[in-house]
Design a protein around this nucleic acid. Sequence first.
DNA 1: AAACTCTGCGTTATCGTTAACACTTTAGTC
DNA 2: GACTAAAGTGTTAACGATAACGCAGAGTTT
Lengths: 343, 343
Amino acid sequence: MITIQDVAHRAGVSAMTVSRVVNNQARVALATRQRVQQAIKDLGYVPNGLARGLLQGRSRTIALVVSDISNPFFTLIARGVEDVAQRCGYAVILGNSDETVEKERQYINVMLENRVDGLLIAPAGRGSRKVLDSLKQSGTKFVLIDRHVEGIMADLVEGDNVAGARQLTAHLLSLGHQRIALVNGSLEVSTARDRLLGYQEALQAVGIQPDLVRIVGNSYKRESGRGAARELLLLPDEQRPTAIVATNNFLAVGVIEALRESSVRVPEDMAVVCFDDIELASALDPFLTVVVQPARTFGTLAAQFLIDRLRGEEDIAPRRVILPPELSVRASCGARLRRPPHG
Amino acid sequence: MITIQDVAHRAGVSAMTVSRVVNNQARVALATRQRVQQAIKDLGYVPNGLARGLLQGRSRTIALVVSDISNPFFTLIARGVEDVAQRCGYAVILGNSDETVEKERQYINVMLENRVDGLLIAPAGRGSRKVLDSLKQSGTKFVLIDRHVEGIMADLVEGDNVAGARQLTAHLLSLGHQRIALVNGSLEVSTARDRLLGYQEALQAVGIQPDLVRIVGNSYKRESGRGAARELLLLPDEQRPTAIVATNNFLAVGVIEALRESSVRVPEDMAVVCFDDIELASALDPFLTVVVQPARTFGTLAAQFLIDRLRGEEDIAPRRVILPPELSVRASCGARLRRPPHG
DNA sequence: AAACTCTGCGTTATCGTTAACACTTTAGTC
DNA sequence: GACTAAAGTGTTAACGATAACGCAGAGTTT
């Protein structure tokens, strides 16, 4: 491994001078600078970030902890984060909590060991409060993405989940549906609670009892959506819903898989709507009616907030940004005749 | 920041003893060990990975550089990498090259500064050779994922792109298509070259001139697919293809968007097939006929290879694993009647 | 009881970089 | 020409952890 000493020796200067050249500081004679740069090139010197980080107390690295990067929603967030981080000279370390507080805790710990300068977290649940509290206490900067946690005051970028769920439900109501079921993730997660609320509000506003709620234990997983839909199909005809609101894309896919299994047509026999778009799927076939959240913006904003803090905005009050979702009406709600999807 | 010294002081021992406790080494009396553990807990001590890394010459971090994490193919790779890395105690730093050699070079450099122990790279093109050579020379371990580079001997996990393209093309031939176009990414990338080859082989085997090739400049982007398809549609009827092989999922989506624009039905008026599944889209509606690559396995295998090397298998000859793709026949090729997609 | 072994701990030096300070030399001022 | 200022460079000491070695005391062997 080539060190700054090696470069210094080759260029006939001290390590300090090399350091100054590397960091573009003034007070180095042009000739010296060029000699050093040549030596750096010759030897292929790459500064040791660990040593620098140790000394300066920062690593120019941030962490991103989400539940599952393979969910397109989080993928887009990651992409947004990455773009901003890169522009600002930060590297991004990734972690998947799989909606588990314990795995989340482990990851955060690893990241603290790696001395990330700050973290972006989509907390796995209310149980995340403990870790977040300890982060707070240790003065580690972090920003919450997509989900809040009761009692944790921190920068936050999330969607308006109540309004989104209200919109989805109201849209189904406007199409004449009366028995609308909700397939929801674990209420550990704030988005699930808020989406439940929006659903309830919309139904109560028109005097319907919101009792067709299925809350799956394993938050936001495809398999859970399948199970919930199967249950709903077992209901006697007069109780069976005519429409389903899935509170995220994974659940919706599971729901649709279960419906297909039982030869229930969408939207003819059952309308289905959900949160969060699946971008490529929609491009291929604009089928699923969803409320789209600006996921990439979640990422860029959150990263920006974090980096702002790292750059010294210590004591500004936490910022909370709530981005509005947008209803995208497509085929699966039955709002319009199903058109030939491809062509 | 709490250091090992602070803990040592509180527990009434030397830093060395604390270090031994933290690293689970023997030769510490039980009573002492417990006292130290208590102190660690009390103070909330987290070992400083930078310091440790500096001393030991490794960071327990690996890098993953792909062209675009928002492509589901790479997302799955990332997920696979992450799983293995986590189990083996490594953190993963992510980078998107956007198919640009220059951006790739920058990322790799940042990662070298961060002293990653090794890298997983899906190289942006032939131009990546330079960086990879210098990695090689500096003794940095890396594994190529999904793409090889002429002249670079390194561990490699990729798909059988020639066979995959051959299968796709042969399948279209078996359905009676004679004029089959290829919409391909930049030949900078090995997958594009191999897929072109497979396409040519399949056509030449039945005596058809493979001349309906569109190679887009901007490798594997949706917009490029759209442009290429538009061009194909401008051809006079007797030259216009009746089927299109897109060499990746993004291109296929673009192609289909362009076809829809012009009210060309898929598969009735134009068959479309491509490389790489879009998992959620297929679950929602098994529409696109594709050859599926085991992307997640790409990730787990490559990560495993890298970590094996890091653990000391210095001088084993580079391993090259070529995983077979699997043809998944669905609607877009017209192989079977279009069935009602949802229900 | 002398010689050895093993346990349980501490000391010292080091990883690569840079902040803070110190030292020359040259240029500029009166 | 003495004095100050600035430019250009070097020295020293730290950042936090641990490898290598050292050393006291208890236990074991001969």
